[in-house]
Nucleic acid binder design. Structure first.
Length: 130
DNA sequence: TTGTGTTTTATTGCCTCC
DNA sequence: GGAGGCAATAAAACACAA
């Protein structure tokens, strides 16, 4: 969900919290910390590529700036989360494990079982929860 | 085993908006 | 005044080299 939207709405936050069995304040803090992490990694990326693109980073007023020309060797989110460090990959913290468990239990239901086995074959697949 | 660096979660303070 | 944002920070858990 964070990959889709950096700012979660109140209803979405409540739904997600209920789904994960967390308090919505925890979800709010998680999104807050994620934005900080995302922004920091983005800035590092921009600095290492020699640019200065502070104004284009997402803010509350402009959550979807144009970052299409940044980090061309890898897509932005992948760079920010998937390859940052072994532990920084998605779904390793307790909260993220809960999310993963939720997703897996959903996928392991009969209607999704075949998809689940396909999914397990590729480690680099992104998990999308809507 | 231990020391050190990193990551995650939570708190605090301040600011803005309704 | 409450809610939610950001920035700085603390504490605990974790990873990893020596």
């Amino acid at each position: 969900m964070f990959q889709k939207q950096k700012y979660i709405s109140k209803p979405d936050r409540k739904k997600l919290a209920a789904k994960l069995g967390l308090k919505d304040s925890q979800v709010k803090i998680w999104f807050q910390n994620r934005r900080m992490k995302w922004r920091n990694s983005k800035e590092r990326e921009l600095l290492s590529s020699g640019g200065c693109r502070e104004q284009t980073l997402p803010t509350k007023m402009n959550p979807h700036p144009d970052l299409s020309d940044v980090g061309k060797k890898s897509s932005g989110e992948e760079e920010a989360f998937g390859r940052e460090s072994p532990r920084a990959a998605f779904c390793h913290s307790p909260t993220e494990r809960k999310l993963l468990d939720s997703v897996e239990s959903h996928l392991s239901s009969p209607s999704h079982s075949s998809k689940h086995s396909d999914f397990s074959d590729s480690e680099d697949e992104e998990i999308t929860v809507s």
